[in-house]
Design a protein around this nucleic acid. Structure first.
Lengths: 196, 196
DNA sequence: GACAAAATAGAACGATCGTTCTATTTTGTC
DNA sequence: GACAAAATAGAACGATCGTTCTATTTTGTC
């Protein structure tokens, strides 16, 4: 790994962490340079534009999401266990130390839902991918007869993600101490109704 | 109504609308002044600080929320009809023309969940109030024997709001055409399980 | 260690930010 | 319509924004 790639990686780590609390738009090249003790122009040279930096931050987050949430789940047994793993791993993701402000995808969602452009497009694609990973795991669980055959995997994926969205909202803004417990309960109910 | 109050009201209307798409932090006094064809300093004089302007925008939104969602629901029959009205009225709120960017409370939530201060405090208080309005309507429905007696109104309010949060996410970012239909279906299921 | 290439720093750009100050205009009352 | 009060405008502030340019330093290769 060359020096440049090293620096670039360090910048993206720091930027990801601060984007999770300040939002992607809240990122400031000057502020990042100060944190990393380098010059604005030196930092800028790695990305050519702020939007490109923001996209790279999102790509970094996607990489971590795959490593933390998706890949470990794929190593679990097909069917219900894998669906459960996706759910549990997501919590590990949303509470990991490198994301002090919670899931970057969720916080960026309302930030960019009205801002057309490359960032919004990438966010939308990412969310669609995530939903289809869940949907696919669910249809495998139907195949394996862990879930009932008339289950709608699309609706399940939707309800699955709803639980996570609500958890994020309640735990971060309202600081409800029972947010996680509630999410777990909702999830068990969802699984229960899927078993039929 | 004096001239000053008139202007102030017009500023808040415009600011609310643009905050719904750009976020509360995205508000710019210079940009607002341009839209309203007045001077920055003339506009500024009404609020004394940007944070105060942001708080007043939120207060304006709360007023509209009460008028659109809560008051009409309180005029409905106690019990399940009132709970239904709260749900339906919320959709009118989230799609109203003065909020082109959707519900300001939801978009501000992830924007300020990591920014301590008066705005965050006010948002938290607002969300708590809203949840307790729902909770109260639900316990009345229990009293009226529309819902089963062992129903947990707190959990119901949580699930109720989860549906709205998910709808907001899916309809705004992913532009799912079936988001509302899905929300309605989830709501009917929630009501069904509450009847017991 | 010479040397080109890669990485970083420094200074400056035009633009915009929120805010303060003073001057001017408009409003409402007698 | 005179007159004080209220509302608005204008100019300027220091700070920060993303970006561009040129100069310097550091890296990696022979």
């Amino acid at each position: 790994m060359s020096k440049g790639e090293d620096t670039r990686g360090a910048i993206l780590e720091t930027a990801l962490s601060s984007a999770s609390t300040l939002g992607l738009s809240g990122l400031s090249i000057g502020e990042l340079a100060r944190e990393l003790q380098m010059s604005k122009s030196g930092l800028f040279a790695h990305f050519d534009s702020k939007e490109h930096l923001q996209l790279e931050v999102l790509r970094t987050a996607v990489g971590q999401f795959i490593d933390t949430v998706i890949s470990p789940a794929l190593r679990q047994q097909r069917g219900e266990p894998r669906v459960r793993a996706l759910f549990e791993n997501w919590f590990a993701w949303a509470t990991r130390k490198s994301l002090p402000g919670g899931c970057l995808f969720i916080s960026s969602a309302s930030e960019f839902d009205d801002q057309p452009g490359a960032i919004r497009d990438y966010l939308v694609a990412t969310q669609r991918d995530w939903l289809s990973v869940v949907r696919h795991a669910v249809s495998i669980a139907v195949e394996e007869r862990h879930f009932r055959s008339d289950l709608d995997p699309d609706q399940f994926a939707h309800d699955f993600y709803s639980i996570l969205l609500a958890y994020h909202h309640f735990s971060r803004l309202l600081e409800s101490p029972d947010a996680q417990e509630r999410a777990l309960r909702s999830f068990e109910q969802l699984i229960g109704s899927a078993r039929g």
